[in-house]
Amino acid sequence: MAAVKEREIPRSIYAANSFCPGCGHGLVLRLIAEVIDEMDIDRDTIGVLAVGCSCLTNRTLAIDLLQSPHGRASAAAAAIKRCRPEKLVLTYQGDGDAASIGIAETIYTAQRKEKITQIIVNNGVYGMTGGQMSPTTLVGQKTTTSVKGRDPEVSGMPLNLMEVLKSFEPAYMARGSIHDAPHIMKAKSYIKKAFAAQMAGEGYSCVEILSPCPTNWHMTPEESMRRIGEEVIQYYPLGEFAKGGDQ
């Protein structure tokens, strides 16, 4: 029987991630690094980090990185791209940063068709600060600020960013998930398409990725992955929502 070849660590990763056990951020960063390596753009990529768990990216990715103020990642990325249009510029943000504190920046970055790529990791909570309810927390989901579960009569319905942003006719927009191997590979393909659209000068692109937070969901990693597949994707459907402005 032929030996199974061990997968090489992408050169765009210089250290093991330091996220909680079972956290999805490590997987998403691995996908980003693989795409950067495959496109051979590690020396031509600039990342802008949000405040939150995504801050820990600066301990993992071996690319140029800027730490932005809370919610301002897409605004900072747009400025960098305008100054260095030849570079691939991405943001790495959580749902609390991109969909709450930074919702204005996210919307107007898309509205202006800034030629950047937003990577938004949606785990439905504010992870780093203790698991509070975020705009994407599902109805009935218990958090430290919705101890009886999210009540839509009090907090409204969860925010579906894809529905909000697609009206601005982005160059590319997709939602993926990392709850099992096939979806991990599909999410990687979405990231690569988003980067390719930016490098082709087509305009704004965005990839949202559904990710587990076992620590703040109070679940095992396995239970968290099952929850995404059985519950989360029912409210946040997966797929490509815009390609070249085609809705």
Rank of each mutant, 00 (worst) to 15 (best):
I120P: 15
P69K: 00
E105N: 15
P69H: 01
E153G: 13
G149C: 11
G102W: 09
A110T: 00
S54T: 06
Q132R: 09
G124S: 11
E86H: 10
G102C: 08
G124K: 10
K87W: 11
L165I: 07
E86L: 04
C53R: 02
G131F: 00
L159E: 02
G127E: 09
V89K: 00
A78Y: 01
C55T: 05
S155E: 06
D95I: 08
T129D: 09
P135M: 13
T109Q: 02
H70W: 02
K115F: 03
D97W: 13
G130S: 06
L159I: 12
R84Q: 11
I63Y: 10
S134Y: 06
V125C: 06
L90A: 08
A76Q: 05
Y126G: 02
I103E: 03
V147E: 11
V154N: 01
P170D: 00
G124Y: 09
R112E: 00
T60H: 15
G102I: 05
G156Q: 12
S146R: 10
I80M: 11
T137N: 08
G156V: 07
I120Q: 09
A62D: 14
E114G: 02
V121Y: 09
I107A: 06
A99R: 02
E105P: 05
I101C: 04
A98R: 06
P158L: 02
T106M: 12
P135A: 12
R82D: 11
Q141G: 10
Y126D: 01
A110C: 07
K148F: 15
N58G: 06
D151W: 11
G140P: 00
T145H: 07
K81D: 08
A99V: 10
V164H: 10
A78I: 02
D97P: 01
T106G: 06
Q141T: 14
R59K: 14
K87R: 08
V89F: 01
K81M: 04
K166F: 04
E153P: 11
T143M: 06
N160K: 14
Y108R: 05
T117S: 13
S134R: 02
T129L: 04
D95Q: 01
T60S: 05
K115M: 04
S134M: 10
C55D: 04
P135Y: 14
G94P: 00
T60M: 11
S167W: 04
R82H: 14
D97I: 12
Q141H: 15
G124C: 05
R150L: 14
T60D: 11
I116L: 12
G102L: 09
C83V: 11
M157H: 07
Q132G: 06
G124M: 12
G156M: 10
G94F: 13
I116N: 03
R112V: 04
D151N: 15
A98E: 03
I107T: 03
T91C: 01
V164S: 09
N123I: 01
G127D: 03
G94M: 08
M162V: 14
R82P: 08
P135Q: 14
Y92T: 00
K166H: 09
S146D: 14
H70C: 03
S74V: 02
T144S: 12
Q132S: 07
S134L: 08
V147Y: 15
Q67F: 12
L161M: 14
I63C: 13
Q93C: 03
T117V: 15
R59C: 14
T143P: 04
S146Y: 13
Q141I: 07
